[in-house]
Simulated scan of single mutants.
Amino acid sequence: MTTVVDRRPVAFAVGTLGFIVALFVGTRLVLSAAVPSLTVDGISLVTNWLLVAVVVGLVAWLGWWGKIRLTAPVDRRALVYLVPLFGFVALPFAFGVAIPDVSLVEGVTLSGWVALLVIVVGSALGAGISEEILYRGVLLRALESKGRVFAALVTAALFALTHVSQVVFGASIGDWLVGVVLMIPMAIGLAAVAFRLGSLWPLIVWHVAADIALPLVPATIGAAATTRFVLAYLGLSLVVGLMGAWLLWQDRRVVDADEHADGSTDPLERTSG
């Protein structure tokens, strides 16, 4: 079955940005009116898993379980590329960790271990599943026909830009823009690694682990420590981005070599006769 994703992959990918923002805005408006006692944390949790349902439904509609590498075996040789990524998991622990206050309903603050469970299951697990399946799964594979470099750049930009949804839940525009700068190089690396792994599951596991660790950075570390954390995160992101650029360049060389061997891109052959 030929779908709009096959016919117009770029339009589909860009349309995803608007859809996700509209989903988050609409869900917050509806839930705020229907259940006024829900906090921003509570609405965010519901929206997070609503996005999981939408993304899984999209994959089911497309029948892309195999295409997005959910049923494929892992290329174990490529697991080495996950090592720099786990720096994002380890980094928060260098600044000390603390379980943040979490309140799903007005006037009720969850106890420490319950709050941690909400972070793990309610937030990190849902985000890891939905974002990896959508960005490094559906969108990356939909755009792959345009070239791996193009697919990596577009999905990286969309991954960062769609996090404008955080503004819906109270983040400032400035914080979101900083996040865009931090996320784009990392997302380029994630796309390149996704092409190499053969399976999407290692990136889902990594994403869940990273989204568990990040909220544990204490909110009281101070301005100087916060600056160091952001700079360290940016440094890691650039390292991962450079690794991704190198992997994509290697992939491009292989494609060019194959095309040259077939004679399809040899300029001498095209102009001969």
Rank of each mutant, 00 (worst) to 15 (best):
M1E: 12
V4L: 14
V4Q: 05
V5Q: 03
D6R: 03
P9S: 07
V10F: 14
F12T: 12
A13H: 05
A13M: 08
T16C: 11
L23C: 09
L23Q: 06
T27Y: 03
L29P: 08
L31G: 07
S32E: 15
S32F: 05
A34T: 03
V35K: 02
L38M: 02
L38F: 03
V40A: 14
D41K: 00
D41H: 10
T47M: 01
L51Y: 10
V55F: 06
G57T: 01
G57H: 00
V59E: 14
W61C: 12
W65A: 15
G66Q: 11
I68Y: 07
A72H: 15
R76M: 09
V80R: 05
Y81T: 03
Y81D: 11
P84K: 05
G87P: 11
F88Y: 13
F88E: 11
A90V: 15
F93H: 02
I99A: 09
D101S: 07
V102C: 09
V102W: 07
S103Q: 01
L110H: 00
V114L: 10
L116P: 01
L116I: 01
L117C: 00
L117W: 00
G122D: 11
S123T: 01
G128I: 07
S130W: 14
S130R: 10
S130K: 09
E132W: 02
L134R: 12
A142N: 06
S145D: 14
G147L: 05
R148N: 13
R148S: 13
L153I: 06
L153K: 02
L153D: 10
A157T: 08
L161Y: 02
L161G: 02
T162A: 14
V164D: 14
S165R: 06
I173Q: 02
L177S: 09
V180M: 09
L182I: 08
I184C: 09
M186N: 12
L190P: 04
V193G: 06
L200Q: 05
P202F: 06
L203I: 05
I204Y: 02
I204L: 08
V205P: 14
H207C: 15
V208L: 13
V208Y: 04
A210D: 13
A213R: 08
L214V: 10
G222M: 12
G222Y: 09
A223I: 12
A224C: 06
T226R: 13
R228P: 13
A232S: 15
G235W: 01
G235C: 04
L236E: 08
L236P: 04
L236G: 07
S237L: 07
L238T: 02
V240E: 07
M243D: 05
Q250G: 13
R252E: 15
E259N: 03
A261N: 03
D262F: 09
T265V: 14
T265Y: 02
T265Q: 05
P267N: 00
L268C: 04
T271L: 10
S272M: 05
G273F: 12
G273E: 11
